[in-house]
Nucleic acid binder design. Structure first.
Length: 879
DNA sequence: GTAGGGTTAG
């Protein structure tokens, strides 16, 4: 028995190494006793560098009270520094507990106790130092007894990859085997660090140890966490080629990797289905190697079907599973409930839940959580059902957790019962569930769902004061709400916390920020931030593209409507808030603005490049985006000769002006002329973009070699206009290539309209700035456009519905095309003979003169404008 | 007293 063991041996051992700590529980008191001078070893900086390293590596202590312990650790740094050991060894007395002599002479139990105490204290740095000492002192007897699991589990909890690696490096090789390496890989998995996991495997190989099925399982798990399905399958192949027999567990991890990878929102549908098939194939693989899939195998496979949105397939798998004699468990039912939820089938989800209870599976809290989540699928949440599940949970003796409460709070919020949502906090207290990120997110979500931004903000402040923040998604929702209603200042305030958490802004974060910029007309700032997204490798999606196009459009509108003919607008200097936002986002030395002048063509070019950059990330444009883009590309009325806009009055003189305008606008575009047309009041790039959109199926395909019926009812006016222009441009090209009579009519299906309005300047009404208060969600969807949604500014009686029709008719008139119409039915059509005449006239004009004669005072058929107009009217009346 | 790896979650 050691001479200094005067009281609790564990306490003594602890104190001997770490010195007095500031934090002690009632049973563990600091040992300052003068009777035990060996306890009061001098503080050295032995651990301090380790602390710094650990912090620098980004590994954070996650355990409760970690901060306090850390403080204690610094105050009472262990005396395991070499120099101290030398001093302690001098004087001939008993070796000091910090000295090498002590490590050489102390009983094995005492040294083990010292190590164990440090484990209890979660002081991994100090424990590593002790290990180093043990190695120096050649205490193989103690080293052979060190529990690797104790250290590495704690390292995993703290995601402390570097510490875990150091642990393996310190331990003599003879004490390290595959199991230790496997636990090292577990630490990497917990830290989501695939590279480190693979490095651990390499390290293991280099020491001559062979990877086994456990290690491969864990490595594949690391791939799963990292979403790297290809490396996972490579490892699986490597395992088989190494002659290792795979088992059920490695298969379930691999299957789960497929399911995890399917969650990647960037993944195309086709790729998702390929992953599902790969997972199904694994089941075959198992059968071929005489492995009987177990419940976990089936569960993960069903998870894949669920992720792929194949609910019937998931149920088929359940049937196969049961037929094979596998008994479904709580996992099975949770997966199926989630599968139903993904398929938006609440009733099916609740049926599965009831079945799970009836079958009497050992319930888990996740089962009940999934059931509550299923209840929130539809807008009208049935609180009775939700509370029934809450009561089921209690009756089954399952302890709720924070995810379960978060689901309840969300459900109550969606049922518009905020009192219930917030009163659940009391239940949480009873269940000793601490405030956490899911709870914070759920409360903020519930408040925002009920349009209570003030309440959401106060919840946010309350949690933030305790250093608890919502999850990224909820952060984004809150930012979006602030962007809409609170302005840039609040967005900046929240973003400061966001980056401090730290969280990486994603595309939704940027969408909210840009939308805030749009509202306060910070176009240059928005453009700078959007460029920063690119630098961060975040591709522009629909939302970003739409918001940026609105910003471009509004800037163009401002430039074009400032009352002069200038195509430039003078900018105000960037606001202090703008600088603050850039600083928060870490955008360094922004070039905002490069000049104090912003030009029309600059914003048109930006609109086009934003659209093109978005397209490059395999994005199919939507009508909404095309609408904003074409609005940017429309040459402003104020910049066109007045006559050019009036049907039948476009003169050769005006025409030239329009063409010159095109040239000016697209002087930096080599193909400027190819798209320019006398009939085009759009930037020539509009037609090329429309053609590309048609080839991408974003706009309907048209045919010139058969009857062509086009339904334009869902198109906003600008899109319809460009679309019609594109159609006739193609017709012209087609005829030019092989002059032949057209045999088939072209007909348009449009919203009903009033003939009276056709000759008023209808399209002027679509030229108005995007409202500051409008947002992407506020924009009418294509199908909604049928419902007379007002798109004009205040006092403008203009509906999307009729303006689309009017603009199509006006475009035909401007082109000089003879059409027939039935306004009440929304039908407009052009006969084949008129198509041929129009194309012939164009063809002739193109050959004879650069100034087409038919656009003069006489119509394409040599008919006077007045008589042509009459014919059109007659055609209408005749229906 | 070196003792490993699996499936769910807004």
């Amino acid at each position: 028995m050691s001479q200094w063991r005067l009281c609790d041996p564990r306490l003594d051992a602890h104190a001997a190494v770490v010195g007095p700590c500031v934090q002690f529980s009632s049973t563990r008191r600091p040992c300052h006793s003068r009777l035990r001078p060996q306890c009061c070893i001098p503080s050295t900086s032995a651990e301090a560098p380790a602390v710094v390293t650990e912090r620098a590596s980004g590994e954070r202590r996650l355990g409760r009270g970690g901060g306090m312990r850390r403080k204690g650790a610094i105050d009472g740094a262990p005396a395991v520094d070499g120099s101290v050991a030398e001093e302690g060894g001098q004087g001939g007395g008993p070796a000091s507990p910090g000295s090498l002599g002590y490590f050489e002479g102390a009983p094995s139990d005492a040294l083990m106790g010292m190590f164990s105490s440090l484990m209890v204290e979660d002081r991994l740095d100090a424990a590593l130092e002790v290990l180093r000492r043990l190695v120096q002192a050649n205490r193989l007897d103690v080293l052979g007894r060190v529990r690797h699991k104790d250290f590495l589990r704690r390292a995993a909890d703290r995601k402390a990859v570097k510490l875990a690696f150091r642990f393996l490096q310190v331990l003599p090789r003879e004490f390290v085997d595959a199991r230790t390496y496997n636990m090292l890989v577990t630490v990497c998995v917990r830290a989501s660090n695939l590279a480190a996991a693979l490095k651990a495997a390499d390290m293991m190989k280099s020491t001559g140890l062979k990877l086994d099925v456990y290690l491969y399982t864990n490595l594949i798990k690391a791939c799963s966490v990292a979403g790297d399905v290809n490396t996972a399958f490579d490892l699986y192949a490597e395992l088989k080629s190494a002659g290792i027999r795979p088992d059920c567990q490695v298969h379930s991890v691999l299957t789960s990797t497929c399911a995890q990878a399917m969650k990647n929102p960037q993944l195309e549908r086709r790729e998702q289905l390929v992953l599902l098939e790969r997972a199904v194939h694994l089941l075959e693989d198992m059968k071929n190697s005489n492995l009987k899939p177990d419940t976990a195998n089936w569960n993960t496979l069903m998870g894949c079907a669920a992720q792929a949105g194949q609910l019937p397939r998931a149920f088929e798998m359940l049937q196969s599973m049961e037929e094979s004699g596998c008994i479904p468990d709580a996992f099975t039912y949770s997966v199926l409930i989630d599968a139903c939820s993904k398929a938006n089938d609440k009733d099916a989800a609740l049926k599965v839940y009831k079945r799970a209870l009836k079958e009497g599976v050992e319930p888990t809290v996740v089962l009940f959580t999934s059931a509550v989540q299923a209840c929130t699928l539809e807008g009208d949440v049935n609180l009775e059902t939700v509370l029934g599940i809450y009561s089921d949970l209690g009756q089954h003796g399952v302890k709720p957790d924070s995810h379960f409460y978060a689901a309840l709070i969300r459900a109550a919020g969606m049922a518009r019962n905020l009192d219930l949502a917030f009163s659940l906090r009391e239940d949480m207290k009873t269940d000793h569930i601490e405030a956490s990120t899911p709870i914070c997110s759920a409360l903020i979500g519930a408040a925002l769902f009920n349009s209570k931004l003030g309440l959401a903000d106060s919840v946010y402040q309350d949690f933030a004061s305790r250093k608890i923040f919502p999850c990224k998604r909820q952060f984004n929702v809150l930012l979006t709400a602030h962007a809409r209603r609170s302005g840039l200042r609040k967005v900046i305030e929240v973003m400061k916390d966001f980056v401090a958490v730290p969280l990486e802004p994603d595309v939704y974060t940027y969408t909210a920020i840009l939308s805030a910029c749009q509202r306060v007309d910070e176009a240059e700032l928005a453009y700078e931030i959007a460029q920063d997204m690119k630098r961060h490798g975040i591709p522009w999606d629909e939302g970003i593209c739409f918001t940026m196009l609105r910003i471009c459009y509004n800037r163009l509108w401002a430039i074009r409507h400032q009352g002069t003919n200038s195509s430039h607008v003078h900018l105000h200097p960037p606001s202090p808030e703008a600088w603050k936002l850039l600083e928060t986002l870490g955008i360094q030395s922004p070039e905002v603005p490069k000049s104090q002048v912003s030009s029309d063509s600059c914003w048109v070019d930006r609109a086009v490049s934003i659209y093109k950059d978005t397209l490059s990330s395999s994005y199919t444009p939507t009508i909404k985006v095309l609408d904003r883009l074409f609005a940017c590309l429309r040459i402003p009325r104020s910049r066109l000769p007045e006559d050019a806009l009036t049907p039948f009055r476009m003169t050769a003189h005006n025409l030239r002006e329009v063409q010159q305008l095109h040239l000016r606008q697209t002087s930096n575009d080599g193909n400027a002329l190819s798209g320019a047309s006398e009939s085009n009041i759009f930037d020539p790039r509009a037609i090329r973009i429309a053609k590309e959109a048609i080839s991408k199926r974003a706009l309907p395909q048209f045919y010139l070699d058969r009857v062509c019926e086009l339904d334009l009812r869902g198109m906003p006016p600008a899109v319809a206009e460009v679309y019609v222009l594109t159609l006739f441009e193609s017709l012209k090209d087609c005829y030019g290539a092989a002059p032949q009579p057209h045999e088939h009519p072209i007909s348009f299906h449009l919203p009903p309209y009033d003939m009276k309005d056709v000759f008023s300047s209808s399209y002027r009404k679509v030229e108005c700035p995007d409202e500051a208060g409008a947002d992407i969600e506020d924009m009418p969807e294509a199908e909604e456009l049928d419902n007379d949604v007002s798109i004009g500014g205040p006092g403008v009686e203009c509906t999307a519905r009729s303006s689309t029709s009017l603009i199509v008719v006006a475009t035909l008139q401007r082109l000089g095309i003879w059409y027939h119409s039935d306004a009440d039915k929304g039908r407009v059509w052009v006969d084949p003979k008129d198509l041929t005449r129009w194309a012939q006239a164009h063809h002739r004009a193109a050959w004879t003169s650069s100034t087409p004669s038919f656009m003069g005072d006489r119509g394409p058929m040599g008919m006077s404008i007045a008589s042509q107009r009459r014919s059109i009217r007659l055609g209408t009346i005749g229906q």
